[in-house]
Simulated assay, not measured.
Amino acid sequence: MAKRSTRPIDSSAGLPETIAPQLATLARRPPATGDWRYEIKFDGYRLMCRLDSGRVKLITRGGHDWTVKMRALATAIEVPVDNAWLDGEVVVLTETGIPDFNALQNAFDRRSTAQLTFFAFDIPFLNGRDLREVPLSQRRELLGELIAQTSSERERFSESFTEDPESLLASACRMRLEGIIGKRADAPYRSGR
Score class of each variant (00 low, 15 high):
residue 28 R to T: 12
residue 75 T to A: 12
residue 11 S to I: 09
residue 133 E to Q: 15
residue 140 R to I: 14
residue 29 R to E: 15
residue 23 L to T: 09
residue 79 V to A: 02
residue 110 R to N: 13
residue 39 E to N: 09
residue 83 N to F: 10
residue 110 R to C: 09
residue 36 W to F: 08
residue 141 E to H: 12
residue 54 G to T: 14
residue 71 R to V: 11
residue 142 L to W: 12
residue 130 D to Y: 13
residue 110 R to I: 07
residue 68 V to H: 15
residue 90 V to Q: 04
residue 80 P to K: 03
residue 134 V to C: 06
residue 27 A to E: 08
residue 111 R to A: 08
residue 45 Y to R: 01
residue 78 E to P: 07
residue 113 T to K: 13
residue 134 V to G: 00
residue 51 L to A: 00
residue 36 W to L: 04
residue 51 L to N: 00
residue 26 L to G: 04
residue 57 K to L: 13
residue 123 I to W: 05
residue 47 L to H: 03
residue 23 L to P: 00
residue 101 F to N: 01
residue 43 D to Q: 14
residue 115 Q to H: 14
residue 42 F to T: 01
residue 109 D to H: 15
residue 44 G to P: 01
residue 112 S to Y: 11
residue 94 T to I: 06
residue 33 T to W: 06
residue 29 R to Q: 10
residue 113 T to W: 06
residue 19 I to S: 00
residue 123 I to N: 03
residue 92 V to R: 00
residue 144 G to C: 01
residue 138 Q to F: 12
residue 130 D to S: 14
residue 62 G to C: 02
residue 56 V to Y: 08
residue 113 T to Y: 10
residue 147 I to E: 04
residue 69 K to W: 13
residue 13 A to Q: 14
residue 52 D to W: 07
residue 43 D to F: 07
residue 62 G to V: 04
residue 27 A to Q: 15
residue 86 L to I: 02
residue 112 S to A: 15
residue 70 M to W: 10
residue 149 Q to E: 04
residue 12 S to I: 03
residue 126 L to S: 11
residue 119 F to M: 01
residue 65 D to P: 00
residue 111 R to P: 02
residue 38 Y to R: 02
residue 24 A to P: 05
residue 122 D to P: 07
residue 73 L to P: 00
residue 24 A to Y: 14
residue 39 E to L: 09
residue 69 K to Y: 10
residue 137 S to A: 05
residue 95 E to C: 02
residue 7 R to D: 11
residue 18 T to A: 06
residue 105 Q to C: 01
residue 140 R to C: 08
residue 64 H to I: 15
residue 123 I to A: 07
residue 8 P to A: 10
residue 130 D to Q: 08
residue 145 E to A: 13
residue 10 D to T: 03
residue 9 I to V: 06
residue 121 F to H: 08
residue 118 F to Y: 15
residue 29 R to P: 02
residue 32 A to K: 11
residue 140 R to H: 11
residue 55 R to T: 11
residue 92 V to W: 04
residue 47 L to G: 05
residue 87 D to E: 13
residue 74 A to Y: 10
residue 116 L to I: 15
residue 128 G to P: 06
residue 28 R to M: 03
residue 35 D to P: 00
residue 45 Y to C: 03
residue 139 R to S: 01
residue 16 P to S: 01
residue 83 N to R: 09
residue 3 K to R: 11
residue 63 G to W: 08
residue 74 A to M: 14
residue 44 G to W: 05
residue 28 R to Y: 08
residue 38 Y to P: 01
residue 20 A to P: 00
residue 83 N to W: 04
residue 26 L to F: 13
residue 38 Y to H: 12
residue 135 P to I: 03
residue 5 S to G: 09
residue 111 R to K: 14
residue 128 G to T: 12
residue 2 A to M: 07
residue 115 Q to I: 07
residue 105 Q to F: 00
residue 56 V to D: 05
residue 92 V to E: 02
residue 40 I to C: 04
